[in-house]
Design a protein around this nucleic acid. Sequence first.
DNA 1: AGCTAATCGAGACGGTACGTCACGTCTTTAG
DNA 2: CTAAAGACGTGACGTACCGTCTCGATTAGCT
Lengths: 222, 222, 222, 222
Amino acid sequence: MSTVNETNRLASAGVTLLPMANKSPKAQPDHTRRSERSRRAILDAALELTGESGYQRLTIEAIAARAGVGKQTIYRWWPSKAAVLLDAFIALGEEAAEGEAGLPDTGDLAADLKTVVRATVDELNSPRYDAPSRALAAESVVNPELCAQFTERVLEPQLQLYVRRIRAAQEAGQADPDADPRIALELIVGPLAHRWMLRTLPLTHDYADAVVDLVLRGITPR
Amino acid sequence: MSTVNETNRLASAGVTLLPMANKSPKAQPDHTRRSERSRRAILDAALELTGESGYQRLTIEAIAARAGVGKQTIYRWWPSKAAVLLDAFIALGEEAAEGEAGLPDTGDLAADLKTVVRATVDELNSPRYDAPSRALAAESVVNPELCAQFTERVLEPQLQLYVRRIRAAQEAGQADPDADPRIALELIVGPLAHRWMLRTLPLTHDYADAVVDLVLRGITPR
Amino acid sequence: MSTVNETNRLASAGVTLLPMANKSPKAQPDHTRRSERSRRAILDAALELTGESGYQRLTIEAIAARAGVGKQTIYRWWPSKAAVLLDAFIALGEEAAEGEAGLPDTGDLAADLKTVVRATVDELNSPRYDAPSRALAAESVVNPELCAQFTERVLEPQLQLYVRRIRAAQEAGQADPDADPRIALELIVGPLAHRWMLRTLPLTHDYADAVVDLVLRGITPR
Amino acid sequence: MSTVNETNRLASAGVTLLPMANKSPKAQPDHTRRSERSRRAILDAALELTGESGYQRLTIEAIAARAGVGKQTIYRWWPSKAAVLLDAFIALGEEAAEGEAGLPDTGDLAADLKTVVRATVDELNSPRYDAPSRALAAESVVNPELCAQFTERVLEPQLQLYVRRIRAAQEAGQADPDADPRIALELIVGPLAHRWMLRTLPLTHDYADAVVDLVLRGITPR
DNA sequence: AGCTAATCGAGACGGTACGTCACGTCTTTAG
DNA sequence: CTAAAGACGTGACGTACCGTCTCGATTAGCT
């Protein structure tokens, strides 16, 4: 994952140590010839297997077998099972998200946040998303490279939606203009993530509402 | 880990399926004969190795080798490397904590919380604690049994200290008596955990202070 | 076994490295205090287990468990599982043999040999003796110390009975006085053992008779 | 080993329990891709190690290490260390035997048999052959599957040479046509094997000669 | 009859090897 | 050239036994 991207970054920046030998250690495979069929099969298999028996028991060999694919085809395009799962998870998100514009803006910040936050709670509690997202979260805690990819491609785009919605509220005079939207957002997302990850207490709509209420009380203009 | 406790719980509750055969599958080893020397060596080795090369590369075999111990001695007393590390981490905490009474109570809730929260930030940023606590957190995300142990033995005791301090503030009239201390606490701890786990942004004293301020604004009596 | 005997041999030969310390490495246990009950239980368990699952799967731990005995009680008195089995096998033979005088002597050498040889065939084919005697034979092929014990205590006493009977026949003029009884005996016993050990062809009474006939034709006076 | 052959035998005989599922438990590895280099290294290592420290102390791990090979490469092609050693022993024999036609036939049966039998004695006494052949013999005594392979691939081909030579002698009128060559042969080979295996007395040329003489006296035409 | 020393059942311990699984690399054959 | 297939060297897994050791609790044999 990092390997692929770093190499790409370097290559596209024209950074090569040897005149015509940017293939020296390991040439990048030719993306134009890549089999889309295999790619989909691999991502699907990774999601299925993670759901069936968990990330710990997920193996590259099992993915290859389930996808009807040679192991090398996985190693050629991904650096680790975590990277496969990340791509699979993103693909999963894209299916669902189709044309999602951003957070709703009805003019009522509290209502809009609760709408979104309840949806997030439902997603985290749904079996379809639970296993892969837990896997990616856990791996991210312990694997900085994967974490960077995960936050960059999945998490931050989501968080920026909150930032935008809160800024809009500030401009509309519904929130204290001195409050830092980033911190406000983390006060909403952090507690939900905490309950979900460490299972301290059940993650419910009521809890989500309470969190939003408390935070909004903190950033309401006085 | 959970196995041990559940078995004990069931046994002490008189719940046995076969009249006198609660020893059938695998008798518990005899704790009175346990070698304290080996136990310490194992916990120390687990911490050292986690610090040196990370949890992923941590191996039961390496722990055994470093500790000068047979593998079976580890498997006899712990069900997984995660369980070993949890015990090691708790032992590590006990050394440091010696006679720690609870959160300070100077009468100024904001100041007291900031004191504690800054200390937590320092601890999370210290190399000594970083590797093992990340490992346990990551494992907990994905392993409910370990998670239960982790929250029960490490996390919740800490969180209860916050609950007590906030209650004291409520009784002293410094905090809204209708606010739920549990939720307030999670609004403080959750965001810190989120930044630490997913490395979205640096985890600093300033951030901690800002979180505390925002939350306190939410529960200050009006 | 070898350990025990070598120690004894050295000790009785007055070979000691330290003046009064022939107990230095490992004192012999006190035979007068030995528990007969445990000894029997161990020998019985060894035979049973060998019969049930074969010598290869026989373990000291299983013997101890079956016999209701500590492992140390076995290690105290025997140097190896082969030695245990040898003692067990000898005890088994003694039960059967009670007061057996030697080979029959009806005056007809051929008939007498066939009687004995058929009985041997039956014994080798009986499940009771098969497993332990195969185990001891196999071990003897590969373990000279055990082999020495096995031949000295089991095999040779049997073979000497043949020698005596053949000598008697020579004195009675029924066999060539120049023939070597030892070689004659081995020509009878060797082929039976060969068939039994390597299972080349079935070991039957007819085969035994044919062997005896052929050998006797070789040593009949001309 | 036996598994492979039996499966093949059954399959080629059309004996299958399930219609098209003779691949269910574990597909045979692909013999065309087998590494000859590894095969040789494994067989050599097995012989060396058996010679150095005996069959009992021979381990699959040691073979793999010495051969510079993964354990799995051994387990993929052989079911046990005994099977490895059998193949190694056969390879050893093939080197020596190159173009060996059979027993010599000078017209003098006694002389020819003594020539062969003395050579066998020398071989059994040579350190090069001693350890592996003892190991295989011992294992065969106790392991019927290996025994079947051993007799089929090593022992019987040798024995058949005797049968042919004795038949030739019968046809030439030098031996009793009524004598059973198989039994005669076993009377020669059995005693030698017996002395060698159980070390009752030294295995010498003189003994071999005496055995041949005695047997021939039994089958000489009267 | 009481003392004392060895044996006993039990089983934890440091080890070695087992046979299996999965890794990531490499090679072969087919398209 | 990619892809499926899968053999290979490597290394960790969790288990089974090894032979040694340390624990009370018998249990003799000798005062």
